[in-house]
Amino acid sequence: MHETVQFYVEWAALVIEVAGVLVMVIGPFFALWRYFFNQHEDGSTYRTFRHDLGKAILLGLEFLVAGDIIATVSTAPTMDNVLVLAVIVVIRTFLSLSLQVELEGKWPWQKKEIGN
């Protein structure tokens, strides 16, 4: 019974990680599509492209973190596995925060834009 549950949990983690990779591979194509075919009159086409591309990367990172957490929980909870997960989560969280600041111009907890 335990092996069956572990098999399905590992499979779910793999599916979520693959979904994250697909989001980061397919997302740029949608961003390019909007860039070329949804022209904006106010000249914000490039800004929209950057924003769409960043959102795809952020969403993909969120899927990858979720997959890593599930994969770590489903394996033997050794200190090495937990430390590797912690390092991965810290790096991906830093990347997510950096991308969000770059895209939105503010920290997630701020209401006003940085520099305005």
Rank of each mutant, 00 (worst) to 15 (best):
S44T: 14
S44D: 14
T45I: 11
Y46G: 01
R47P: 00
R47S: 13
T48V: 03
F49S: 06
F49G: 06
F49D: 10
F49V: 05
F49Q: 06
F49K: 08
R50W: 10
H51N: 08
D52Q: 10
L53Y: 09
L53D: 02
G54R: 05
G54A: 04
K55H: 13
A56F: 03
I57A: 09
I57F: 08
L58I: 15
L59Q: 09
L59W: 04
L59R: 05
G60A: 01
L61G: 13
L61W: 06
E62C: 09
F63C: 12
L64A: 04
L64E: 03
V65L: 12
A66P: 11
A66W: 12
G67F: 01
G67A: 01
D68Y: 07
D68G: 06
I70A: 01
I70W: 02
A71W: 06
T72M: 03
S74R: 04
T75Q: 10
T75S: 04
A76H: 15
T78P: 08
M79A: 14
D80P: 15
D80I: 15
N81E: 03
V82R: 07
V82Y: 02
L83F: 03
L83K: 07
L83T: 02
L85F: 08
L85D: 00
A86S: 15
A86N: 12
V87K: 03
V87L: 12
V87Q: 05
I88R: 11
V90F: 13
I91H: 07
I91R: 07
R92I: 10
R92F: 13
R92H: 14
T93L: 02
T93P: 03
